[in-house]
Simulated scan of single mutants.
Amino acid sequence: MGASVRSHRLQEVRVTDDDKARVATIFDVARLAGVSHQTVSRVLNDLPNVRPATRQRVEKAIAALNYRPSPAARALVTRRSRTIGLITTGGPDYGPSSAVLNFNEAARSARYAVSMASMLKSDPESLHSAVELLLRQNVEAIVLIAAHRGALDAVQGIELGVPLINVESSGRSGFHSVAIDQYHGARAAVAHLAGLGHTRIRHLAGPADSVDATERVRGWRDELVARGLAVVEPMVGDWSPASGFGFGSVLAEHGGPLDFTAVFAGNDQMALGLVHALADHGFAVPDDVSVIGFDDIPESAYFAPPLTTMRQDFDGLGRDIMLTLLAVLADEDAPGVPPTVPELVVRASTAPPRP
C-alpha cells in the first residue's frame, strides 16, 4: 500500500505487542462485499434503497472482518460531495481530450462537479499524488482516462477507497471499464480497404505504450489474417502529423513502385502527414495509395483529398461513463455498458487500386 493511502484519515492502525495490525475500515468492508463504501454506510445506518442481497453481503463482510465503525468515519463517509475526481494522463491528443470534454458535459447534466488532475507522465508516484489530491476533496468516485498502459498498471496498486471507472479499451479484468471498441474499429477500417480490392495494406501505429494503439494494431493484424492477406510489421508513430510524414517519406523514398496500395493510419493527424509525404514524392492519394485514418477530427473533411476515417462517438462515451458511474454509486447490478464501435466515414482518400 502506498504512503499516500496510508495517510488517508479513514485508515485506522493500532499497535500490538508483536506488530502493527490494521483495524478493518469501511473500505475493507466495501471491497470484501464488492460494493461502494456509500452502500456500506447505508447498511450501517439502516437506510433504505439497499437490495436485500446486497445488505446480506455487507453484513457478512462486516462480521468476517469484525468491523467496528468509528463515529468520525461514519460521519465522513455519509456526506455526499456530488464531486467526481477525473485523472488524465498523456498529452492533449484529440481522443482523450474529446473524452474529457464529453464526460464533463455528462457530469454537469447529472448535477455533479468534476475535479481534474492532469499529468503528462503516468508513473506510480505521480498517480498516487493525483489520487491523494482528489481524495482530500472528498470525491465520491474517480474516473481515469489513461493514454498509457502504465497508468492502468499503477492504479492497480493503489487502495482508493472510492469506486474507480477506467476509460480504456483492452477489457482487462478487475475494473469498471467504459470504452470505444478500438479493436473492431480497426478491423472495420481494414475491411473497407480490402473490400475495395486492396491486398497489400500497411499500418502506421500509435505509440507502443498506448492501449488504444495496441488494440488498433491487433484489429488490423487479425483482419488481414482472417482474409489471408500478408502482414508486414507496422511502423510506429507518436500520433503527430510529423511522424506520419516521416513514415510516408521512408515508404516512398526508394524511388521505385510502391509495394503496397493502401495504408491504415492509427489516427487522422498521422494520416495528414502521410498524405503530404506521399504527395511530395509524386504519389497521389487515392490513385496510387488509399489512406484511411481514425477519429474523424473536425479537419478530416477538409484534407486534400478529404480523409476516409473511423468516427468515434465521444459524446456517447461521456454519457456511458456517467451512467456506469451512477450505477456503481447506487450499487446497482450493472453488467457494464457495451463498447461502441466506431463508424466508417467514407470520403475521397480511398478508392479501388489501379490495375
Rank of each mutant, 00 (worst) to 15 (best):
P163T: 12
P286W: 04
D181E: 10
I180K: 09
A33C: 06
V225Q: 13
T83F: 00
A304T: 15
V291S: 06
P71F: 00
T214H: 08
E253C: 11
D153S: 14
L307A: 06
R9M: 06
V167Y: 05
M119Y: 04
V40C: 08
A186Q: 06
V346K: 12
D315E: 07
V143K: 12
D46A: 11
R42Y: 03
R22A: 14
A252L: 10
A61Y: 00
R149H: 07
T324E: 06
T83D: 00
H148Y: 14
D153L: 10
D238W: 05
A230I: 08
V162G: 11
G255F: 12
Y67K: 10
P92V: 05
D18V: 15
L196W: 01
A284V: 11
D287S: 10
Q38Y: 06
S81L: 10
R14C: 10
L120I: 11
I142S: 07
P52M: 11
L325S: 03
P92I: 02
I26F: 00
D181L: 12
M235N: 01
S349E: 02
V100T: 09
P207R: 15
R55T: 08
L44P: 05
Y94W: 09
A110T: 07
S290D: 11
P241A: 08
M116E: 11
K121M: 09
R55W: 01
S129G: 08
L127N: 05
D181P: 10
F175T: 04
A265C: 11
A33I: 00
D280Y: 01
A24E: 04
R221K: 13
A351S: 08
A73W: 01
L101M: 11
A147G: 11
L134S: 04
S4L: 14
G219R: 12
P355V: 05
G161M: 06
A61P: 02
V337N: 15
A279K: 13
V13P: 01
V40P: 09
